[in-house]
Design a protein around this nucleic acid. Sequence first.
DNA 1: CGCCGGATTTAA
DNA 2: TAAATCCGGCGA
Length: 192
Amino acid sequence: MELNQPADLAARALLGRLLVREEVRLRITEVEAYGGPEDSASHARHGRTARNAPMWGPPGRAYLYFCYGMHWMLNVVTGPEGEASAVLIRSAEVLAGLDRVLDRRKAAKNSPQLCAGPGKVAQALGLDGTFDGHDLLAPGGLELRNGPRPVGILVGPRLGIGFATAEDQVRPWRFADGDSLAVLQRKTLHSL
DNA sequence: CGCCGGATTTAA
DNA sequence: TAAATCCGGCGA
């Protein structure tokens, strides 16, 4: 699964792939690439720390972090071991296990936006810090599997990175399935 | 050691 | 538009 390559390329390769945990199956519809210390928007921007250590690990592992004091974010580690990069899973569609997802997502109704947003994706899968470093390519727990690739891909700047340099803020490292409704801020995206 | 602010979501 | 809510990273 082409994860051992630069984050932006790996990010595109992750669109359409599946995240499976027990009866819940999600199809990835939106992602964002984050690079190493040279990327001022990345958690790796201050170098290696206990929190971001998984980003330097082998590709195909999970990197989970807690944000805004209430949300877990799921990333797929990419690139060669020893170099920091990861792909944030931003949105997904529910292919199976809808009852379980609705139960976990509390008040949410079954709309195309049910898992549109990184916090929502992690919540739908019931993820937390115990999945940090988990091998997504091995059977058991949370698994990443092949799925139907998107026909058209949309590209645009990453969201929520106002703290980054102007250059990194406009870097077109957000990717989405052009045919999916589970995508945030469609207006800021354009065809690849 | 204390402060600042964040790869967000939700409801008003 | 703002509140919820907490910990990582930085400066002192």
